[in-house]
Nucleic acid binder design. Structure first.
Length: 593
RNA sequence: GGGGUGGUAGUUAAGUUGGUUAUAACGCCGGCCUGUCACGCCGGAGGCCGCGGGUUCGAGUCCCGUCCACCCCGCCA
């Protein structure tokens, strides 16, 4: 035992062997993927990271002791095999890269056994995610996850070599940092040395990368871990990774160009997918009116139509009331949708209700006839909206969301559009739709507190021409911020930052952050801005989302080696866990009750 | 915080109007088999029906609570 691992070196990857290796003596090391015991011959599929190779143990060649050992092999045992590559004695297996050949074993070393597997190491596995997360180290042996991890590693290399070639320097910024207001809830780390005080884990390296611009490094990048203590989703984890960049002396175009080129390299090199050059841009306002969302899926048309004016005069009270109350009536024409059943439409109604819509009105067109509950209210004006503006043709379905709150109507309609795009198969699988969204508003109103909050973050530079509105009409102030969206998912966003201390103070004031408070919490930033801060801006990509799109996965859990559940727990390590009273004592902490 | 779906053998599932010993497939264990590759054939073991309470002569099944996983809203850039 142990002889081979010391005396022998693994000579080839199992999946690398080909007919050209015929006659060579090789040493393979890996896992038993499958065994087929025929009594006097045992076939073993040996797997390592490179793939599979069939190894044959023939009683006549390997001797009694070795043969008995081979017969005892089970799934996921770890073995070393020395043998000779030969053309397959039986039929070649076209499903294997090494299917032309096999290795006739001369020696076998059992390096380790495996307990029975909770689920097989196969590309398709029917075990639930709970089981797979508990045994993540086994799930990671499977092909699809291996592919995701390899893609992730390659994508990181593409990013590094791209930004390195563009003159960026890679930095590390603190993980233990200070809590700042705004944004998400912080993960806190108690300080032992200064009991009663806390570090926060960074929600992003935002302030540090700006300070590195003040420090004169001009081009910064980092593949940075970020932490946010908020409720989770398929595309949100408590810790996630950003490709973070920041540049001095740049316009939004400069940032979008250098980032667009990186995206182009990634999709070209890792997916063989073309990326338009330049990537199209639309303003936030345009995105909202055409798609109802700021992350539109541009792979299909079916744009929203605001028919408020033409619906204002009809007898359908829902429309006319909303129109006179200053709300919006938004229409969506579903091509060929007239064949949808009442049940289908009811399901869509339930869908839009989750976004706050009160209901979903609809009209079907068959020839020149309009049918459906709303059809009897269709006057000439509304008819021109349906057939003219919405371009409803024979067999089409018109869907309408009306709401006194314009943003509710738009959002619900936008989500409905995205939902229909997926469910009606309007997007061809494997295609990609890229778009930049620009000119975001600086502020939005917090519904709970009624206060203004920064839409991006409070360091985003307002547009020069809107600066004068900062005090008088803050909601009308637009910024330089830009998001990059692929297939209806935001994969990155950034902005030009404020580099003028006076402007930064005005923004804090607009947000209701008093001078004193701003001093206390962001003093170091305001200081920095006063010492010759260059104009600067940057962007951060959501690396996990980017990879999930590259590998075609629905969940970023599939592209993170050790992800957490929706309750932010790790089913493998059982984190988070309770800690010793002594540890708490040392930190000066006491648990409630 | 709210809504939805699910939890039965190692895994994935079935389980009727509440009824006797809770099924199946794969996996596992034993035996046979020299050309298989999802090998095949014969035999076997394996259950806190998520957990706690209740209704009932009797609960996997009905009721209440609770935990866990996933999806969505809120939240989060």
């Amino acid at each position: 035992m142990g002889k081979f691992i010391h005396e022998w070196k693994k000579s080839h990857g199992a999946g690398e062997l080909r007919a050209q290796h015929e006659g060579q003596t090789v040493v393979l090391m890996g896992w038993v993927d499958a065994t087929r015991d025929h009594g006097k011959a045992v076939f073993v599929d040996l797997r390592d990271r490179s793939g599979l190779c069939q190894v044959v143990f023939d009683a006549a060649d390997i001797g009694d002791e070795g043969f008995e050992l081979a017969g005892g092999l089970r799934q996921e045992y770890v073995v070393a095999v020395r043998g000779t590559v030969r053309k397959r004695a039986g039929k070649p297996n076209p499903n294997l890269s090494s299917g032309e050949i096999e290795v006739l074993a001369a020696n076998l070393e059992l390096l380790n056994r495996s307990a029975p597997m909770p689920f097989p190491v196969a590309d398709e596995v029917d075990a639930g995610e709970t089981t797979r997360l508990r045994y993540r180290f086994l799930d990671l042996r499977r092909g699809p996850l291996q592919h995701a991890m390899i893609t992730r590693s390659r994508a990181a290399q593409v990013a590094r070599s791209h930004f390195d070639a563009e003159g960026f320097l890679e930095f590390e910024t603190p993980i233990l940092t200070r809590s700042t207001p705004e944004g998400a809830r912080d993960y806190l780390v108690p300080s032992r040395v200064s009991a009663g005080t806390f570090y926060a884990l960074p929600q992003s390296p935002q302030l540090f990368k700006q300070l590195l611009q003040v420090a004169g490094y001009e081009r910064y990048y980092q593949i940075a871990r970020c932490f946010r203590d908020e409720d989770l989703r398929a595309d949100r984890q408590p810790e996630f990774t950003q490709i973070d960049i920041e540049m001095s002396f740049v316009s939004p175009d400069d940032v979008m160009d250098v980032c667009g080129r990186m995206v182009s390299k990634m999709f070209t090199e890792l997916r063989g997918a073309g990326v338009p050059d330049p990537i199209p841009r639309i303003s936030y306002a345009e995105a909202m009116s055409r798609y109802g969302v700021d992350n539109p899926d541009v792979r299909f048309e079916m744009e929203l139509e605001d028919i408020t004016e033409k619906a204002a005069t009809c007898d359908f009270k829902v429309f006319s009331a909303v129109a006179s109350a200053g709300g919006r009536v938004i229409g969506l024409c579903v091509e060929g949708g007239a064949k949808m059943s009442r049940k289908d439409i009811d399901a869509l109604t339930d869908f839009v209700k989750t976004y706050g819509a009160k209901g979903l009105a609809w009209v079907k067109r068959s020839g020149d006839d309009l049918s459906g509950p709303v059809s009897k209210f269709v006057d000439d004006s509304l008819r021109s909206a349906l057939l003219g503006d919405m371009k409803m043709k024979d067999g089409d379905l018109g869907l309408f969301i009306a709401d006194g709150d314009a943003s509710v109507a738009l959002t619900a309609a936008g989500r409905l559009r995205a939902h229909l795009g997926q469910t009606l198969g309007l997007v061809s699988p494997g295609s990609f739709g890229f778009v930049w969204i620009t000119d975001f508003p600086m502020f939005e109103r917090d519904d709970e507190t009624g206060r203004l909050v920064a839409m991006h973050h409070p360091f985003t530079a307002p547009k020069e021409e809107d600066l004068h509105l900062l005090e008088t009409d803050p909601l009308a102030v637009r910024t330089s911020a830009y998001d990059i969206v692929v297939n209806g998912q935001e994969i990155g966003g950034g902005s030009i930052r404020i580099h003028d201390q006076a402007v930064q103070s005005r923004v804090f004031r607009a947000l209701g952050i008093e001078e004193e408070e701003a001093r206390a919490k962001f003093g170091f930033l305001l200081d920095a801005l006063s010492f010759g801060a260059p104009p600067h801006g940057g962007l951060a990509f959501g690396f996990d989302r980017l990879i999930s799109i590259l590998v075609g996965s629905d969940s970023i859990r599939d592209v993170i080696a050790f992800p957490k559940t929706t309750r932010a727990a790790c089913l493998m390590t059982q984190a988070p866990s309770q800690v010793d009273g002594a540890q708490l004592e040392e930190l000066g902490l006491q648990l409630k009750k």
